[in-house]
Amino acid sequence: MKKMQYDEKSPKLLNSIVCAIDILGFSQMILDSCQTGLGNKLLSEINYLIEKNKNCIVPDKYSQGKIKIFTDNMVVAYPIDYDGESELNEILGNVAEYQFNLALEGLFVRGGISIGEFYINEDIVFGPALLDAHYQESEIACYPRIVLDDKTVEQLQRHIQNYNKMPEDHIILIDTDGKWFIGYLNTIFKYFKDCSNEYEFEMVKIKLLEKHKEKLEEMLTKHKENIFVWDKYVWTANYHNFFCDLYFPQEKDLKIAKHLLLSWPRQISTGDF
């Protein structure tokens, strides 16, 4: 039986899983780079990074997934066949890899995922699932996380119950506010997964986490005087530390130091006048 797919010639809404993604702080990056004469440099870097990493979203010609990019905004969609298990697993894993790869370059993203009617072609993205995914991204995510809306959570719960297994590599986490989100750091377990040298594989994972830590520390230092932005990277740093405690408890140096994640008041001194 032919798989469901978006028809370029005859637009029709299909039940789909849709993800909307936005790069955190990108508007300010554009303003800053153009004011300092570095607009073309930023444009070139962003173009390179998106081209380099977008293939992990729709990795091969056999995938029915579609992608639409507008600079820092991305919409990814997969039409759903049968119970949607394979499409859900595919989009979660692929989006996690994209999020992880950008984070290693110092670009942190937020996003939302929803399920519903949707259509996409070269010229248009359309449907209530897009509106719901965008709402999750712009109003609910807040931090550099990609959250699942209630419909997606319910679908995932059905799959867990029906197949008696958790999503691949435990990629979904539940935040303190109850929101389900993609734990993108689990992507490190995909790198060289078939490597026969366990020590080499372990070193690769540690190096990737060290790079993630380095980029986060840069962001925490850069934005320490802007509490609204800084708080978003504190959230991501806490997620990083949680992941390290869970999978690399002996590697204490992988964690981000607590003094970077706290803001203490101080008394007034003569130096303040």
Rank of each mutant, 00 (worst) to 15 (best):
E200T: 15
E251D: 13
E225I: 09
D132M: 04
N15I: 08
D272S: 11
Y143V: 06
D22Y: 04
W235T: 10
V75T: 13
D175T: 01
M74V: 14
N73Y: 04
E45H: 15
Q136W: 00
W230Y: 12
Q64I: 08
Q5N: 15
G111N: 08
H259Y: 06
G25V: 12
C19T: 15
N40T: 15
L43I: 14
M1D: 14
S269D: 04
A237C: 07
F126T: 04
G112V: 10
K52Q: 14
D169L: 00
Y6H: 12
K190Q: 05
K207G: 14
F201V: 09
L14T: 13
V234Q: 04
H170Q: 05
H212V: 08
R145K: 15
L260K: 07
S44D: 14
Q250K: 13
I115G: 02
E218N: 07
L102R: 06
V229F: 01
D175M: 00
K68F: 11
E122A: 14
I23M: 14
G65Q: 07
N101I: 12
A141W: 00
E8M: 12
E8W: 09
I174Y: 00
S114R: 02
L216I: 06
E122F: 12
D177V: 04
L38M: 15
D32M: 10
K151I: 08
Q136M: 07
I67R: 08
F118W: 07
K151S: 11
I227P: 04
E105D: 13
M203A: 11
R110K: 12
C142F: 06
L262Q: 06
K252A: 10
I256A: 06
G111S: 07
F108G: 10
K66G: 05
L43E: 09
D149A: 01
W230C: 09
L92V: 04
E202F: 11
L262G: 00
Q64C: 05
V153L: 02
N197I: 10
A257C: 02
E218R: 09
F108H: 09
Y143T: 11
N238Y: 02
E198D: 13
K258E: 09
K193Q: 00
I69W: 05
P128L: 02
T71F: 01
L173M: 07
A129K: 03
M219D: 04
T187L: 00
